[in-house]
Design a protein around this nucleic acid. Structure first.
Lengths: 319, 319
DNA sequence: CTGAAAGCGCTTACAG
DNA sequence: CTGAAAGCGCTTACAG
């Protein structure tokens, strides 16, 4: 353990083995293009193991100019369970390439400084749409900014299509779209609604933001209008729609069929359980990681093809 | 902007102002115990602003031996919505003290290296119980390990007490405890159950892990035994219990009262909505941050008093 | 009270 | 093919 209370450094190893620090660095990093005698290599490795050598990451980052950290900025979407799985996959993929993934979300309290300022990552990967100010701030920090063109939200455009098609299959001609009341989701509501209209082949699809307070009124009104199928922004909204229908004495799915989105944990828990759209988050995570790795590699800036996000209809009791 | 394509350094500022780099550092960091003429101070600040100076964090960390990063290891608990709010508060508190908070959870894929190895944080704050191996790994990384004595789970011991008291108030003499099937929560199930028994004043409290599959059987059996009140591990379990009761044709809360725990988002969404226990996560977050700051401060290692976690009963329709 | 100098622990062009 | 030397951008004891 060399000197007590101090971590071993490359200098310690170099001195013990009787080579230069450069050689130690080459061996430890498997630097390509270096020819180290297998004897020296073995002795360096042995000594490193003996003293429990652990490189100082800050020194390495300072010398190499790369921190090995990729920061991912999570969108302000109410889909944490989805993001988790996606992050797991992205982290694993990045790890194989020698990067470690740190995640943050933007809706932190106002005082805390964004992590790209305090972590100095090599790259910042954004899932959702970034404000111009944040984008500038990231550029200024020196990190490479990687954001999917148009934002990741467009990746799931086929969700509403699938929802509508399913209700059609079930024989529901008159449908409505239930939007979320979550702040900041307005543009996403509109995007989904537009998809629903396109899939339904008409602009005359009733729509409303559905909240715990207004759900009975909205659902009741739709029922009176002859609506028998409701496409929901997500499973939380679907839960409200189903709850309201039940309170009104309607049968689900007989009087009103409801389809959620995201296959959130509550979808299977509810009674009746929710039909919904499951997203291939593993594929998404893998794609984001590959995008970051490609952008960080020295080669010519290869454009990364937009991913094909797998969406799958999960049929349960509510439809 | 000094030289194009390169960030300004303290050397650039020092040269422009005509002072040493040390002076620049003293001014920029407001280093106590230094006497800098206000003229010099102003000129350094002005130049720093002009060139948009941003310190290199890796260089700073290497020189100072402190990274300014606190890593918080999230427990593998199914309470993400709670942790989020707690993290917000902890991050804000740490930020004021000059630290930035990074969070990770342990159930990442096996290949990804833990963040304490790749980030070299000053401290690692653990919320839940850490495996001995992880604890050793953290120590080895050089980070200061901060873990609440006995784990944070003990902080909420009074939750079950409140649940039981509430059902008693509602006139339910015969109660049962519904445990969660989530892997790794066994010890927490047992802890909660022990609390329930203590609060009920008897060891004869029926208990069972409740899953989507067995819920109707379990609830039906309890009903036949004369149980009228169910204390649940959390709101997800409560949702299962309520759903099962409804499927069996029981009225909630008339035939069976159910109390959840955590006040998760679904608690208010469900029909009937769930009575539950709300946790003062803001207070918790603040406490964890203060603990870390105290541990990191140079002063004598002051023992941090265990926090008083506020728990509040939220009465809704299910009880 | 001030600032020149040493040093933090690495990496990597470059000279041998 | 090898390794001595310079350098990354800061901080901070220490000498003036």
């Amino acid at each position: 353990m060399t000197k007590p209370g101090r971590r071993a450094t490359t200098a310690d190893i170099a001195a013990a083995v009787g080579v230069s620090r450069a050689t130690v660095s080459f061996v430890l990093n498997d630097t390509p293009g270096q020819t180290i005698s297998s004897d020296v290599r073995a002795r360096v490795l042995a000594e490193a193991g003996r003293v429990g050598y652990r490189p100082d990451l800050h020194a390495r980052a300072l010398a190499s100019g790369r921190s090995g950290v990729v920061l991912i900025v999570l969108p302000d979407w109410p889909v944490e369970y989805l993001l988790r799985t996606m992050l797991d996959e992205a982290a694993a993929t990045l790890d194989e390439a020698g990067y470690s993934l740190v995640s943050m979300d933007l809706r932190r309290s106002i005082h805390a400084r964004p992590l790209w300022e305090t972590l100095q990552p090599d790259a910042v990967l954004s899932i959702g749409t970034l404000s111009a100010e944040h984008a500038r701030s990231i550029q200024r920090s020196g990190a490479r900014l990687i954001a999917p063109t148009g934002g990741a939200e467009h990746l799931m455009a086929s969700g509403p299509m699938t929802q509508v098609a399913h209700l059609r299959d079930r024989g529901h001609a008159r449908i409505a779209f239930a939007a979320t009341a979550i702040a900041g989701m307005g543009w996403m509501n509109r995007g989904r609604y537009a998809e629903v209209q396109a899939a339904a082949g008409t602009n005359a699809v009733p729509t409303s933001v559905v909240t715990a307070d207004n759900a009975p009124d909205v659902i009741g009104e739709w029922h009176r209008q002859g609506i028998t199928g409701v496409v929901c922004f997500n499973d939380d909204v679907a839960a409200l729609a189903v709850g309201a229908a039940l309170r009104l004495g309607l049968r689900v799915p007989d009087d009103l069929a409801v389809v959620g989105h995201d296959d959130s944990p509550i979808a299977a828990l509810l009674f009746p359980s929710l039909s919904t759209i499951r997203i291939d988050v593993v594929g998404l995570g893998h794609h984001f990681a590959r995008t970051a790795i490609a952008a960080l590699s020295d080669g010519p800036q290869s454009e990364v093809a937009p991913p094909t996000v797998g969406l799958e209809l999960v049929v349960r009791e509510s439809s």
